[in-house]
Design a protein around this nucleic acid. Structure first.
Lengths: 338, 338
DNA sequence: ATTAGCACTCGATAAATTCAAATGCTAATT
DNA sequence: AATTAGCATTTGAATTTATCGAGTGCTAAT
């Protein structure tokens, strides 16, 4: 069976009507749009159903797009339009504020997108590997507690506290930090631990008695930098719960749980579909069979991450795609204006 | 009407049975416990109902504790027991780990409590005002971007980035920071901004041309320290949604919303009932008519805050009170072992 | 190839019925 | 005077039955 033009138009109409009304679409309601009788539409519907693009809940109900149908729609039928003036206006206020850190700008954007669309949005970001070590400071709180503060050239700062054994000398730690500042500044932050072992450890091994301990402290500090420097921000967590298709308390509770735990984080990270915008519908989402996830990566100002919008399968695909593309463009554009 | 012993015993039994079964309590089911006939119990129930301690949903249902009844229960009838071995065991693992920062220990505790009780718990903490300024560092990222890193004697570190005008000299900022390090170390962190104005500003006014800008940078840095240094941590957000009394999707959505937005933060802070453990039932909770909030303040290791457990009104009062008291004791105990 | 016509299906809604738990009240008992 | 047994009564919850209408699939006509 072949997807002729009328079938395409019909599927497009079914998807878009369903997305708007959330009610199974009957043959009658489409007569005017497709300029033919309901009987003709019914015949075509049977064809689309056989191809797996639409389904019916029970024998006498209207048709609903299947996952396959949605996928065909996003791949072949939808036409992402320019943003409406209203949508754009709301986002613009954010990009006009130059003082915002990238991560804050992304978070704020997502808050607005969640608000505009009533879906849930997430950003999972981390300092990108083009952050270079700028400086490490050691602050002694007292004889036994010290803090190591690591700062990158992109302005990301992390700190970690250590409690020393009585036989470790704070001065030796400070000396080592000075050595690191002399020798390793400019090293990509994810390579520091490595260089530490091969360039610093051999040197301090000769000078410091307790060099293993000292080495471990710095090793931990840099490792923690990488570990801690991932941040997740979720906006409109409850929006998803409000979608009318999630009717039973089981649905709501199940999704609420998933929105809380870490399966969520994994979902955002696990699927790696390259640099372009990706759409995962239903089972493909790796999150819940009843949602669609639209994701896109961004990279800007020493940070990189993934933005994901989670909505019902009958998502306003065109609008969300436009919003997300526009936003990432702007975010990445921030870089250049520096 | 007077609360004689039998009425007290009856109310206690009704509350505890209801908490366990979540079903209205009928007169028959209490005969054995109270050693009298169901008719006698019915008579007493009428009395308790007139006093406002119990209610019935409809004329032929069993009785349910009213808010007043719960309040009478927590004030006069309940007997917080020692923790069960199991509950204690789970918490203990946390306190045996000496490396944990206080805020992490509190968060971990709450995760366990949420897990044990199936309620939602929150901690809203901030660096306490007995944090003293230990050191401020200025790191120049390039000619125009600098980072100020503030560290207190309790080991709390915050940083803030600034973008300078072209006519501001980084060296003057560094000099000023050294001045602050000489003169203001040991000042309570919330008093620094004040001292800055009266002790530092007059001095730099004479030496630095653009002293207002420099002053403002440090003023902002310290102000931000105080502002940023509040953290909120929520555990088991969805637990509350799972409670069987929240049946309708409206209930669930309403509560889910409240658990997300900031009304929540306010709720934890707003009610200030002194240092002891506080119990707010229903309307008193300032959060939702259908929940109970149990709160307690803690103070330890340069941090202070409030812990709140949110559950249904038929909360396991005795258990939660015991858990919370035990936990705060331990947390505050951490201080001394240093 | 399209459409009108019609019997048929099935969920959604409303009305009717049944059932059991618990009550309030009265009168008997301790 | 306090307690209890006995019983009619209330009421929600669960189950069944009836009705309605949107939408389909199929056949025959256009």
């Amino acid at each position: 069976m072949i997807m002729d033009e009328r079938k395409k138009a019909l599927l497009k109409e079914i998807v878009e009507t369903y997305v708007k009304t959330i009610k199974p679409v009957g043959s009658n309601s489409l007569c005017k749009k497709l300029k033919c009788s309901s009987a003709t539409i019914r015949n075509e519907m049977v064809a689309l159903e056989n191809m797996g693009y639409i389904e019916k809940n029970h024998i006498s109900s209207g048709r609903v797009p299947s996952e396959l149908g949605y996928r065909y729609y996003v791949e072949n039928l939808m036409e992402p339009k320019d943003l409406t003036g209203e949508d754009m206006l709301k986002l613009q206020t954010i990009f006009s504020n130059n003082d915002l850190q990238v991560s804050d700008a992304v978070s704020k954007c997502l808050e607005i997108i969640s608000d505009l669309t009533n879906y849930t949005s997430i950003v999972l970001g981390k300092s990108s590997n083009d952050n270079l070590l700028k400086q490490i400071n050691v602050i002694a709180l007292d004889e036994r507690r010290i803090i190591a503060v690591v700062c990158t050239d992109k302005g990301i700062v992390e700190n970690k506290q250590f409690v020393l054994d009585t036989n470790t000398d704070v001065n030796e730690i400070v000396k080592t930090s000075e050595m690191i500042n002399k020798m390793l500044v400019g090293t990509p932050i994810n390579k520091v631990a490595e260089k530490l072992e091969f360039e610093i450890k051999p040197i301090i091994a000769k000078r410091i008695k307790d060099y293993e301990t000292v080495y471990n402290i710095f090793y931990d500090a840099f490792n923690d930098f990488i570990k801690h420097n991932t941040n997740m921000h979720v906006s409109g967590r409850v929006n998803l719960l409000k979608e009318p298709e999630y009717e039973t308390t089981e649905d709501i509770k199940r999704i609420a749980s998933k929105l809380e735990d870490d399966s969520f984080k994994e979902m955002v990270n696990n699927i790696d579909g390259g640099e372009n915008l990706q759409i995962y519908i239903g089972k493909d989402s790796n999150f819940d069979d009843n949602v669609t996830v639209i994701k896109k990566k961004y990279k800007s100002g020493g940070e990189e991450g993934t933005i994901a919008i989670i909505g019902p399968k009958r998502m306003e695909y065109e609008r969300v795609v436009s919003l997300l593309n526009y936003m990432v463009d702007k975010i990445e554009g921030k870089d250049e204006r520096k």
